[in-house]
Write a protein that binds this DNA or RNA. Structure first.
Lengths: 191, 191, 191, 191
DNA sequence: AATGAATGAGGATTCATTCAT
DNA sequence: GATGAATGAATCCTCATTCAT
């Protein structure tokens, strides 16, 4: 059974299985056995690749974050001008794959995990810093008080995401528009 | 040793212990034994009063919610006019005892729990509905489009709270002011 | 099922089960489940009382040591004069219950354990110190060079015990006599 | 990479790794993976050469025994007369490489293993028989009662070694002298 | 009411061994 | 020969829950 170059595939399958499993149970109370079974391998192999359950969870979190970052970059690439770029960021935050119930469920669980797990906390801070600096970069060109707006906007994005994750209404278009509108208000109020 | 009228005290001690324990471990991974010990009784007695661990968690969540609601009412009682009342609500959301790390930690954990536990989900919805209707009541007197503003404001409050819970910066005055400012922007933009 | 005052009984039953189990498998590779079953309880309860498997092993070692010490004291109590006391000590080291295959097997395993386990090492040192000081006390009255004789005698006792444990010849009378004879030679040589 | 004549080297490397690993962990709780890694090969290859972990342990024990035997022969070769030969044997038992903590640690672990493992028991008996017959051969020329002295001397050697293994005092010169002195006493007492 | 003894299922992790390549 | 992927049984330990007293 052992094949060459299986490691990346196995790891990817496990990370995906972690997200699926969290999405299905809607909690972090998933067992390594469940994850491994879903990924089509034994629990022993899962440990062989990740060392511990915690590492699997962190890898899943990292994956979601990386995927999200990639999406932000893609959206930004095709945006013209600071206001359009801000909309691109907002859109990325509420894109289909980010809003996928499996992902929102995982993300919300990771918020809780970040309270007690240093690795998760670190990743969460990374996400927050990136969002903040992305927002600041464009806001600086649009307003004289970019910092409070960036912070409010970041909080708003997280808050909207949080509520959406909990209610699973999933009205994505509305959601992104709602945040974009709020941004308009912030900007107009500064004038 | 059985005394009359102990039940309310025992239940209160347990609820308090649940919150303390969650606050200390910063997660829901607390054991009934830990909770009971902290509350000064045996784990058997804890079960006697609550039937299950889940009920203890729900009771703790309910307690936090009730305490918060009471605080909102108190703040509202001394507020004059719709704008002042909105500030009262905002203030209540970031009051010392609500912002207490033990409470934010518990609240964030409950967010995660609400995904998989129907009782927790129900309480969470209750909280959200109350906040929404409280905001709407006053916003209706200040703007022609109260609903989107209420929703954005609610999301902002939750987002700010979420970020605070994670970062434990705990700069409460700033936080409340930040949200109040955002509200001003929302209102001004509507004019 | 829970009864009052069960703890001492349970602990004693577990300690005895540990020794029996080690004696039967003739190694430390015994499982908590086996021990608990032999002691007539669940593995959970075994952990409840001892916290860990290691603690159970240490408790068993401590028990054997205590039992041995008590026996030495008993033998010493009825011995008259230094030479007779030394014989009493030697006799105690090869008494029936000490020479019980279950005990020798456990003791030999503990020798190995003492290499890597600090608690076991500590108990082993305790045993060695006691033996040494017991021997020295009487040797001081019989010879001008008590220390080397005490050390040789202690090593001889341990060596004879070790060989007996391995070979299970169990010729106890011969064994004790052999050591006593050696002691005579040591003493005569000093004169 | 397969080279001719690698087998003896691989086996030697593994045997050496077993001893090092036991010496380092001071217990038999070493994994095949650790051993193989230390020997610079995969765990699969280790099995290929030895078939099982048990065989590796036995091979290590056999190696130590063979090395020791060779050393005894060397020492004996340069000894003149029975008393000197006995000293040679004693010296060999406490020679630097035999007294090496890695070796004493392994040897003590093998004592424990010999209780439950027939192969280990067999090797242990082999060692004991050889020591006994070596001692007897020369004692016969020095005393009328060679057997009890041989047995006491063997026990003394093992006991001293055991204590040294546990305490790691490693005062080799003293140790050998102590045993040689004891032998003198035994012999003098017989006269 | 109150205790804490008792259970036993469940879960993470380890590891010798096998085997496809 | 050589690798290391893969398995899965085994084991320690935890913990919610029950229940005799």
């Amino acid at each position: 059974m052992p094949k060459l170059g299986m490691e990346p595939k196995r790891r990817a399958a496990l990370v995906s299985a972690v997200i699926d499993e969290i999405g299905e149970t809607r909690s972090l109370d998933v067992t390594v056995a469940q994850i491994a079974r879903r990924a089509g391998m034994s629990s022993g192999l899962a440990h062989h690749y990740f060392g511990s359950k915690e590492q699997m969870l962190i890898a899943a979190m990292r994956f979601i974050l990386a995927e999200f970052s990639a999406h932000v970059r893609t959206e930004l690439a095709s945006a013209q001008g600071p206001r359009a770029r801000l909309d691109a960021i907002i859109r990325a935050n509420f894109a289909a794959h980010v809003f996928d119930p499996r992902k929102t469920s995982a993300w919300l669980s990771f918020y809780a995990l970040a309270q007690s797990n240093p690795h998760a906390a670190h990743l969460m801070q990374l996400y927050q810093k990136r969002l903040r600096s992305n927002l600041l970069f464009d806001l600086r060109q649009l307003t004289a008080r970019p910092i409070p707006i960036a912070e409010s906007l970041a909080a708003l994005i997280d808050g909207v995401y949080l509520r959406a994750a909990l209610n699973e209404t999933g009205n994505r278009e509305t959601t992104a528009a709602q945040v974009s509108d709020a941004l308009d208000m912030f900007l107009r109020a500064q004038r």
